[in-house]
């Protein structure tokens, strides 16, 4: 009997907490988040961090997990260095993507790969906060204990066909992105979590040049 009551209490408490987490934020808090993200972005010239990426394939009941190092430098320089389970580097300088794979380097324009181009825009927009003001997405705001969570739904039906929702988890302390979740229309999603972030640590331009 005691166990039943305890179970009921835990169930009710967790339902209450889940409800509290999903409650939409008021306009003042949303403004505070936008301001915080904008200020953090203005102050951030470089980011170096570890990342873990999980692609969850719902129907296959399987995951692809990879990890590595991430570098960002204003305005549009990105480097994704996958270390595990494979070695692979992607450097993005504006519209040019360069890939280093098993000693071979290939460059191409983001325009030759629309999905890549879109994901690149989303990631840079998340880091520098411009995605929150992007008319291509309808934004809603919630919070949990550690994060302000911005849920972005693509307005364009064509984009919505491949990407149903993006969730950006901003750290409540410094307004930087801790986690990014991209949900696909088929129910699969990819979660990219950034850890051991270092802000404004000098990062050479050469980090973004592969040869």
């Amino acid at each position: 009997m005691l166990m039943h009551r305890l179970f009921l209490f835990v169930l009710l408490a967790s339902s209450f907490m889940a409800g509290a987490q999903q409650k939409p934020l008021d306009a003042a808090t949303i403004q505070q988040i936008k301001k915080g993200v904008s200020q953090a972005s203005a102050k951030t010239n470089t980011i170096s961090s570890e990342f873990t990426q999980e692609k969850e394939m719902r129907i296959l009941n399987d995951k692809i997990i990879s990890s590595g190092r991430f570098y960002f430098k204003k305005d549009r320089l990105l480097r994704w260095e996958y270390i595990h389970p494979f070695s692979y580097v992607i450097a993005i300088r504006g519209d040019v993507i360069t890939i280093q794979d098993e000693g071979e380097v290939k460059s191409f324009n983001t325009q030759s790969n629309k999905v890549f181009s879109e994901v690149n825009r989303i990631i840079i927009g998340s880091v520098n906060g411009t995605l929150l003001e992007d008319d291509s997405f309808k934004a809603s705001y919630i919070q949990n204990r550690d994060h302000y969570v911005v849920s972005l739904t693509p307005v364009s039906p064509s984009l919505r066909e491949s990407l149903s929702r993006i969730m950006i988890f901003f750290n409540k302390t410094n307004f930087t992105v801790d986690k990014l979740e991209m949900y696909e229309s088929e129910g699969d999603f990819t979660r990219i979590a950034f850890t051991t972030k270092e802000l404004n640590k000098p990062v050479s331009d050469e980090v973004f040049i592969l040869n």
Partner: peptide
């Protein structure tokens, strides 16, 4: 991935996980 009794499932996605 092998799917018992039917065949295989093949998922091609870009580096950031978005499905082609």
């Amino acid at each position: 991935k092998a799917i018992p009794d039917t065949g295989y499932r093949v998922v091609f996605s870009n580096e950031f996980g978005m499905t082609y």
